[in-house]
Simulated scan of single mutants.
Amino acid sequence: MSIRKVMAALAAAAALVLVGAGPAMAGGSPHFIKSATSASADGTGLVVQFKEAGLSAGSTETVQATAHLDATYQCINGGGHNPSDPKKTTVSADVSESGVFTAGKNGNLVGSLTLSPPAAADVLDCPGGQTSTLTAVTWSSVMVEDLTSGASIMLAGTFSWGAPV
């Protein structure tokens, strides 16, 4: 075999390796970066920040944050106090929010989503002279999921605001 044929065969093999490795490196293993994905209480809401890697550059991803909510709503009188016979209710439900994000040239996607409890007026009807008020919130079981790539991560912790009156 001549040197020219050997060099041509090596060049062809190198080209195949580079072509085959390109897609694998660009978007082969979508995953959330644990150290760059977190949740924190912001008043009554929950802000979920995330970073996902291993995506194809420019890919469009639908990311969803979900958390379990336990919230207490109470009727508060004009003086800012509970009446002697307080009316209250508790909501226990999963809340989610999603958004569409685009991965950068490096295959990384960085974003945030905010979860909010239902508005007090939508949850509890109060008698005249009293206002439906959200008095306590606890968020738990926080999960971030890329509905497009299938990557997901569960975040540890419970996040609370307020206290039932």
Rank of each mutant, 00 (worst) to 15 (best):
M1C: 13
I3Q: 14
R4V: 15
R4A: 15
R4Q: 13
R4Y: 13
V6N: 11
A8C: 05
A9S: 12
L10V: 15
A11G: 12
A15H: 05
L16N: 07
A21T: 12
G22Q: 14
P23D: 09
A24E: 14
M25T: 13
A26N: 13
G28P: 06
S35V: 12
T37N: 01
T37G: 01
S38N: 10
S40R: 13
A41M: 08
D42R: 13
G45M: 04
L46F: 03
L46A: 03
L46I: 04
V48L: 02
Q49R: 14
F50G: 03
A53T: 08
G54Y: 06
S56Q: 11
T60Q: 12
T62V: 15
Q64T: 13
T66I: 04
L69H: 00
D70L: 11
A71D: 00
A71W: 01
T72C: 06
Y73N: 00
Y73F: 09
Y73Q: 01
Q74V: 10
Q74M: 12
Q74D: 07
C75K: 01
I76G: 02
I76K: 05
I76N: 01
N77W: 05
G78F: 06
G80N: 03
H81D: 15
N82L: 14
N82E: 13
P83L: 06
P83V: 06
D85H: 10
D85K: 14
D85E: 11
P86F: 01
K87F: 04
K87L: 10
K88W: 12
T90Q: 10
V95R: 03
E97T: 08
T102K: 11
K105A: 15
N108F: 05
V110N: 09
G111F: 04
S112W: 03
S112L: 10
T114S: 11
T114F: 06
S116Q: 07
P117M: 03
P117N: 04
A121K: 07
A121N: 11
D122P: 00
D125W: 03
P127K: 02
T131F: 08
S132G: 09
T135E: 08
T135G: 10
A136Q: 13
V137T: 05
W139Q: 02
S141P: 04
V142Y: 07
V142R: 01
E145W: 05
L147S: 09
T148A: 09
S149T: 08
S152L: 11
M154K: 15
G157M: 08
F159N: 07
F159I: 07
G162R: 03
G162L: 08
V165R: 10
